[in-house]
Design a protein around this nucleic acid. Structure first.
Lengths: 232, 232
DNA sequence: GTCTATAAAGAGATAGAC
DNA sequence: GTCTATCTCTTTATAGAC
């Protein structure tokens, strides 16, 4: 209770439960893991989850907050830094995108052997819990998006704000999908996707999103019924 | 059993179950919906699911196959068409991307009032079942990816096949995330994302992915430790 | 094909001894 | 803080009457 957050790993029951729960949720999803699965994996008693967290949902929320808070904080910090560096001019879109994406890598590097767990868990947060995030995470997301929108509107003044909002959304889609489905890619390409490390993958995501963010728009150039003939 | 697939909507128990199940799965996810939820919604008896499908998983698989088969078929058809049209030269990357994305819209338009259900259900398939797809869907995905890879390698001969594989993966990430999380976007942007129709959103996805697919690569230009100073 | 009734297993949660 | 034991509810699945 009065420990600094992030100070995990002491062999205390609560920490063991959180580590076990994070791994199992990452691997199998929130709904397919029972409290018994968790306490068994954590070598704890069934009643322990209830003692420490109250309910299963409260445990999930605590894990999501614990996983997301440092990420949001690091993103905001990088945006602060960027604004300081570009006090004279405008922060370029690429720098803004970098501030969103790169903290994922930085945090990953702090995870040691738990990198894959962290990736998948954060992916689950985005894909399976996107509509049911804990209030503080939701609020943090809103603050981030609001700030991103303002900064990107300055960087890309010719782009409609609505289009911008969707493109940012697409970037998060790339991130979430990538965090979750590396095995799917490996299976579906039968190995042609290689086994790149996280840094390489992150850089590829950034490249892709950068291209997407800056892409030309063909809005209103296409109407329905044109499929198969319209060639961009 | 001896009905043509796609011939739904006759007020038969089996069809009512499939429609109800698709809606509920789309809305709440596969693991959070019980057979009782489904049969209640479908005004059918609890035992009916077992009678018609055997198990809950068999029902899920049948729905996933039913949802994915026409999509895969339409994509392959558009790739066929494109190859015919470009017999002399090479099919441009944009046309290939279009063949992957646009069938989603075409099929959507056939869904009438069930558009949103179809969107979310297909999104769930990609995000929640990506690692556990029915064998025929997995095979179809492999065939599609293999073909895409060959065609895109011709269209973008300077791009490494591995990078290409990941960029295609990113495109599917954009699609899946968008299908699932329109409300999340609305909530997180507090309305700034507007309420575009599906066509507009699809066109925005295509624009974005087109930019991403063609983006310049900064592979090997960045090494770790450079975050915050490297500016693209 | 549709129903009731029920089996068998598993879920989350809690009371109360230690 | 940790344990056993148990409550209560829900789940999937099936047997057997109609």
């Amino acid at each position: 209770m009065n420990k600094r957050s992030g100070e995990v790993g002491k062999d205390e029951t609560k920490d063991r439960i959180m580590l076990a729960a994070e791994s199992l949720f990452a691997e199998r999803g929130f709904m397919s893991v029972s409290l018994r699965d968790i306490t068994t994996e954590a070598s704890a008693n069934v009643a322990a989850v209830n003692y420490y967290f109250g309910t299963k949902d409260a445990l999930i929320d605590e894990l999501i907050i614990q996983g997301n808070h440092p990420l949001m904080k690091a993103r905001m910090q990088l945006l602060d830094d960027a604004e300081k560096r570009y006090q004279i001019g405008v922060v370029p879109a690429e720098v803004i995108l970098d501030a969103v994406m790169r903290p994922m890598l930085t945090l990953l590097e702090q995870q040691g052997e738990r990198r894959e767990v962290y990736c998948k868990f954060m992916g689950r947060c985005m894909t399976e819990r996107g509509n049911n995030l804990p209030v503080p995470v939701m609020r943090a997301a809103q603050r981030l998006i609001k700030r991103l929108s303002r900064m990107l509107a300055d960087a890309l003044p010719d782009m409609e704000p609505e289009v911008l909002a969707w493109r940012v959304h697409f970037c998060f889609g790339v991130l979430g999908h990538t965090l979750m489905h590396d095995e799917l890619l490996r299976e579906v390409t039968k190995g042609a996707s290689g086994t790149p490390d996280f840094e390489t993958t992150l850089q590829r995501m950034i490249d892709f999103c950068k291209g997407g963010l800056n892409a030309g728009s063909s809005a209103n150039l296409v109407s329905s019924g044109s499929q198969g003939t319209f060639l961009f």
